[in-house]
């Protein structure tokens, strides 16, 4: 086995300097980059900054007025509905993350190592479809399947079993959230597993490792960053989802997303809704930071 030869880095000498552009040297990157920057600034960054700003504003006689009050923050952060929604959302998202990873790992393993290359590529293509197509409709379909008079209960009835209360609880909520997250998690892990250096696995096998040991000692550690990525992505999607809780549990109990939309709808309480939104973003940033930390700590330990 020849050693892996990394592509030689491109020496500086082979990067054209900016000055090859006639006229103003930076003309092209500016002409290309400025519209991009402007667009993202106006339609993405500015709204997020504004979201933070209006958490300090006031609503007077149904009108939003600039101010600097902490009232919105104290009212939301010390309110029981917020605490309940926060606890519930965290618990739901954490459950989805654990379930998605537990399911995605063996699924990705089977796709990456048990299918032929052609079937594997087909499976990846098929998984890309749900990631980009109508989650809301699929949630609605689950409602049809799991409802009191739905397909699942019709099938149960046909074989003489009693009807089950499938919709409206933790079970249906997880079904909905896994519909959203599981294909993404599996895709991330398949790409990572196929990318694992096969010589590593062979070497471990040659050293007499059993299959189970190869998986726990070689495969899992070498795709740790991908597992962290799959986990954080799943958490993010489940944490911020609105449609799943809305249709799978009828908003009972409400998640933070539902609390946010309800706060906007009822009485135009934009500042308070913004507090909920900013808090959610803060939590997500925290989760991502922890995820990065989890990845890097491992790498450092392995490097030493």
């Amino acid at each position: 086995m020849p050693p892996a030869s990394p592509k030689p880095p491109i020496p500086d000498a082979f990067r054209p300097s900016a000055s090859i552009y006639s006229g103003s040297p930076a003309a092209m990157p500016v002409a290309l980059g400025l519209p991009v920057l402007a667009w993202q600034a106006v339609f993405f960054l500015a709204p997020l900054v504004f979201l933070v700003v209006i958490t300090f504003w006031q609503v007077r006689s149904f009108r939003l007025e600039p101010a600097f009050v902490l009232d919105n923050w104290t009212r939301i952060l010390w309110s029981t509905p917020f605490h309940r929604a926060l606890g519930h959302t965290l618990q739901v998202a954490a459950t989805t993350t654990v379930l998605a990873l537990l399911l995605a790992l063996p699924l990705a393993y089977t796709i990456a190592f048990r299918l032929s290359v052609r079937v594997r590529d087909l499976a990846v293509s098929l998984l890309a479809v749900p990631v980009f197509s109508s989650y809301m409709l699929r949630i609605y379909a689950w409602q049809v399947v799991l409802g009191a008079d739905g397909i699942a209960n019709a099938v149960l009835g046909a074989v003489g079993l009693p009807k089950l209360q499938l919709l409206g609880g933790a079970f249906s909520l997880q079904v909905g959230l896994l519909t959203l997250t599981l294909p993404v998690a599996v895709l991330i892990l398949v790409f990572a597993m196929v990318g694992v250096d096969r010589t590593l696995i062979e070497a471990a096998e040659n050293l007499g490792c059993r299959r189970a040991q190869v998986i726990t000692r070689v495969l899992i550690p070498s795709i740790r960053p991908a597992i962290v990525l799959a986990g954080t992505t799943t958490f993010l999607l489940a944490f911020g989802d609105y449609v799943g809780p809305l249709f799978m549990t009828g908003s009972k109990p409400p998640t933070l997303s539902i609390l946010l939309v309800d706060t906007v709808k009822s009485g135009s309480q934009w500042p308070r809704a913004s507090v909920v939104g900013v808090s959610m973003l803060a939590i997500l940033v925290l989760v991502f930071a922890l995820g990065r930390l989890a990845g890097s700590v491992r790498i450092r330990r392995r490097a030493s």
Partner: peptide
């Protein structure tokens, strides 16, 4: 040597 050639071609200043 390559840099010299690229200087000739104007690919480097």
């Amino acid at each position: 040597k390559s840099t010299t050639l690229r200087l000739l071609a104007g690919l480097e200043e």
